[in-house]
């Protein structure tokens, strides 16, 4: 068994195995840190930058930080909230996040985080991104203009023989997600559903299944994202 370390999160002492991922440890202990690109069990990508926390006073991403003895972590304060809000707003204007016309509205993680941070409107101008929508495969569609480049689908969704179905194309401002049409056409309904659920925005869309859940009954209509994690925190306090 590996060594246990003691450190603090928001002033409370936490004990965890040395070298474990800070974001996972925080979550297990009832501290919700917002993140759009993190998947437990997968190598962190550190691409969304939303899980910024203060470690010994320095701002760093929790998903790429390993826990160590004596570290002092702050997950929430005014500066972090403002930073996260600005990152979210930048994501909103960079792509075409027009919620009323999106199949993912109500179950979208990006939208849910914006609700949680009470964003009324982004402070930047909309880009009106103009990337081609990949809709040639019969059952799955890729709306690249909504992609936040989190790489979740690239990392987690593979074909039966382990090949990548999704991948990145081009660089810099032209960087975009793309899919192998041949491999995508072989995906089962369950695979496509899993890919759609993994996508934190409305980029991967299962065709013919949009707008199925009525408004008011969707995942984030009544409860904020991270509520299940925070509940755990309340229980611990009692």
């Amino acid at each position: 068994m590996s060594k246990k370390v003691k450190f603090t999160i928001d002033g409370n002492e936490i004990s965890a195995e040395e070298g474990k991922n800070l974001l996972d440890v925080a979550c297990e202990n009832g501290y919700y840190i917002p993140a759009l690109c993190h998947m437990k069990g997968h190598k962190p990508a550190g691409s969304c930058r939303l899980c910024n926390v203060k470690v010994n006073g320095r701002i760093m991403t929790a998903c790429t930080t390993l826990v160590s003895e004596g570290m002092e972590v702050i997950t929430e304060d005014e500066e972090l909230a403002e930073l996260r809000k600005t990152i979210l707003e930048a994501m909103f204007v960079d792509g075409n996040h027009f919620c009323p016309a999106c199949e993912k509205s109500g179950v979208c993680d990006l939208q849910a985080l914006a609700y949680k941070h009470k964003i009324m409107s982004p402070k930047f101008k909309y880009e009106f991104s103009n990337k081609k929508v990949e809709a040639e495969v019969p059952k799955i569609m890729l709306e690249k203009n909504r992609c936040i480049l989190c790489k979740k689908c690239i990392r987690a969704i593979k074909s039966k023989d382990g090949k990548n179905i999704f991948g990145f194309k081009a660089r810099g401002k032209k960087l975009e997600i793309t899919m192998d049409e041949e491999l995508a056409a072989q995906m089962t309904d369950e695979d496509i559903q899993r890919a759609m659920d993994i996508c934190p925005v409305g980029t991967i869309i299962k065709k013919e299944k949009g707008f199925k859940i009525p408004i008011g009954k969707r995942k984030y209509d009544k409860k904020p994202i991270g509520d299940n994690v925070e509940k755990h925190k309340e229980k611990e306090k009692d």
């Binding site: 919620c99 999106c102 009470k118 408004i215 009544k222």
Partner: peptide, 10 residues
């Protein structure tokens, strides 16, 4: 203080 359920984009 605006409650969570009323800020929606759709």
């Amino acid at each position: 203080d605006i409650p969570y359920e009323v800020i929606k984009y759709d």
